[in-house]
């Protein structure tokens, strides 16, 4: 299934780029993200909880950044498995940033997500809506975070968060 989202952030493109490429700032914006771990400069591991009605499950996801053109383009792949390998999830994503003047950035991303296994057979139509709402929640959380830091004139919110989450990820 395809998931795409475009949203505006009131912050300069460089700051948005820094936020979106730093797992410490981006991970807390991902709905259901329980923990993450930095593996290398271009790969991360995260545990993400997915819920659809009575079904609740954790995916262990590995994200690889495959191409980066700062500050406008980022391509990544993700591969995740449920405990017991009952389902696997793969995603190919592209992210584009566009400067809309000095203090404004448009973020757009498109992902092609495939879900195979027990969850792949269940309620695909609902899953797709769920994925869309996760995308929207992410956009809101991300925008709030970046704009909060921008409002406090490039304060240390990002660093504080990264300390918190390094702990959560450990």
């Amino acid at each position: 299934m395809q998931i795409a989202e475009t949203f505006a952030v009131a912050a300069p493109i460089e700051r948005v780029w820094r936020f979106i490429t730093d797992p410490a700032t981006v991970a807390p914006c991902v709905p259901g993200c329980q923990s993450y771990e930095v593996l290398t400069a271009t790969s991360y591991k995260a545990t993400i909880q997915i819920a659809l009605g009575p079904i609740k499950t954790n995916f262990n996801v590995i994200v690889d950044l495959t191409k980066a053109e700062p500050p406008t383009y980022l391509a990544s792949t993700a591969r995740g498995e449920e405990g017991g390998k009952a389902s696997t999830l793969t995603a190919k994503s592209e992210l584009r940033l566009l400067a809309n003047g000095p203090g404004a950035t448009t973020v757009s991303y498109a992902s092609e997500v495939a879900l195979v296994g027990r969850l792949g057979k269940f309620g695909l139509g609902m899953m797709k809506k769920k994925a869309k709402s996760i995308g929207e929640e992410f956009a809101v959380a991300f925008r709030t975070r970046v704009e909060a830091e921008t409002a406090s004139q490039g304060g240390t919110a990002g660093e504080v968060l990264s300390a918190d989450n390094a702990q959560a990820g450990a």
Binding site: P54, I55, A86, R118, L119, K121, F122
Partner: peptide, 8 residues
């Protein structure tokens, strides 16, 4: 049905 499908 969901238990049989290993969903719950």
């Amino acid at each position: 049905a969901m238990m049989n499908a290993n969903l719950l």
